[in-house]
């Protein structure tokens, strides 16, 4: 179908975008980033905003910066940039690996980092990566700027901590040198949304597992961290059964919903298997990096 009529503006700067958001707040304007989710929703008329504020001309939001291994990514940076960037592969290999699994390349040419995170699709890869990496998400509004930890950002399906007058402007990723990483997912056909995806980071401390970070997508109402499994891994011997146990624990509290693509029971089984695979890969990479 075609979208219903709407007012459209393409501001050139963040401050212009924020003024438009506040000026039209009564009309509940929608912010348009890459448009790879919002425009299909508008074509289906599942979303029918009367005011659309397009960020595609806001060039100041399209950047990648690296200082001391700390990576800062502008919200309008295209997903395709992530998989091709040497800085991202080096500074945030988990992100580079996950980026290659987002839909298909033509989608990644338009889809943005900020758009995916702010849209908060429960099955999307980038929210899980942001959670696992302890990303800081910068939100700007007419009231100023605030930094939201990823762990406080995702509240439910398509629901985030962003206020209606706020725009997600950048994603800050802490440096994680020497960390093993893995992003794995299961989808029914290549390039489709994952039924379940797992982001894992694992550090070694001597011959034991030091810190582990584990986040899931597709397995709950939104992307989520599984801290109980992380605690179980910390200090454990990598040779023992810790990874298998962590996989059990990660899936234990979850009740993924059944849908046309898979039963909740099957998704739970996938979660256990993919957590195990992610941790095994992350461990092997951590050992390789020594």
């Amino acid at each position: 179908m075609k979208p219903p009529p709407f007012y459209y503006a393409a501001p050139a700067t963040v401050s212009e975008a924020l003024s438009l958001l506040s000026e039209h707040r009564e009309s509940e304007p929608r912010v348009l980033a890459g448009g790879q989710s919002l425009v299909p929703l508008m074509n289906f008329r599942l979303a029918h905003p009367t005011h659309v504020i397009d960020l595609n001309k806001v060039t100041e939001l399209s950047f990648l910066r690296s200082d001391d291994g700390r990576l800062t990514i502008g919200a309008m940076t295209r997903q395709a940039v992530l998989e091709r960037s040497a800085e991202v592969r080096l500074g945030a290999p988990l992100l580079a690996e996950a980026a290659g699994m987002i839909a298909h390349e033509p989608i990644r040419h338009r889809g943005t980092v900020g758009g995916s995170i702010a849209h908060a699709d429960p099955a999307a890869e980038l929210p899980a990566v942001a959670l696992a990496m302890d990303a800081e998400l910068v939100a700007a509004s007419g009231r100023g700027e605030r930094v939201i930890p990823a762990t406080e950002f995702f509240l439910g399906p398509f629901t985030t901590a962003l206020e209606p007058d706020e725009v997600l402007t950048e994603v800050r990723l802490p440096a994680a040198p020497g960390t093993g990483y893995a992003f794995v997912e299961f989808s029914r056909t290549h390039g489709n949304f994952a039924l379940v995806g797992v982001a894992a980071l694992l550090e070694l401390d001597g011959d034991r597992i030091g810190r582990a970070a584990l986040a899931l997508c597709g397995a709950g109402p939104c992307a989520l961290r599984v801290t109980e499994a992380e605690r179980l891994l910390a200090g454990a011997s990598p040779d023992g059964d810790a990874i298998g146990e962590a996989a059990e624990v990660a899936a234990a509290g979850l009740t993924p919903s059944s849908d046309a693509h898979a039963s909740g029971e099957f998704k739970l089984r996938l979660t256990r298997i993919y957590v195990q695979r992610a941790l095994e890969t992350a461990l092997a990479r951590a050992q390789d990096r020594r």
Partner: peptide
Amino acid sequence: CTVLCNGESIRSCITFAVQ
């Protein structure tokens, strides 16, 4: 509906002409 936009493939059915 694939077209190239500044040399990169995009879906022209989920891109607005104004963009």
